[in-house]
Amino acid sequence: MKTLRSLACLAPILLAACGADPAPGPVEQIIVREAGAKTAAPAPAAATGDAAGALIAEGKAAFANCSACHAVAKDAPNGAGPNLFAIVDQPAGQVAGFAYSDALKASGITWTAAELDGFIADPSAKIPGTTMITGAIADAATRQAVIAYLESITAN
């Protein structure tokens, strides 16, 4: 392995990898505030809308991560994952034109909020063999927000 490492350093394009730091931690770390705590500065006025609206907005923000693979606009093309327009309460594996895994197609699931919650928490535990291999959301509150957002995207 040592030999390989030094050989690797011969390839100039990869020099940076050979000179990697031993990753020192901070010399000085000033923690002004914990990440979850409210800022000392006055919070911006809450946007108008009820709690449900806020939840959907939170879900929409969190969905940005999902949007790398999933479109939500009506008739938008499938990405690496199927379009999720009006997906809630639809049978699994039925979005036109998407190449589902056999496992998902055969799952017999209907995408209720509860089923979505279980799937998003750990897709391959819920449906072994699914090709959704990334994008799991560990945080239950974030999942609820994302599902609320998906529920808000309907044909109506």
Binding site: D21, P26, E28, Q29, I31, V32, A41
Partner: peptide, 15 residues
């Protein structure tokens, strides 16, 4: 910097 809005941490990482 530590009094400025939004600031969570200030780190001296050496380099």
């Amino acid at each position: 910097a530590r009094t400025m809005p939004g600031v969570l941490q200030i780190l001296n990482m050496g380099d």
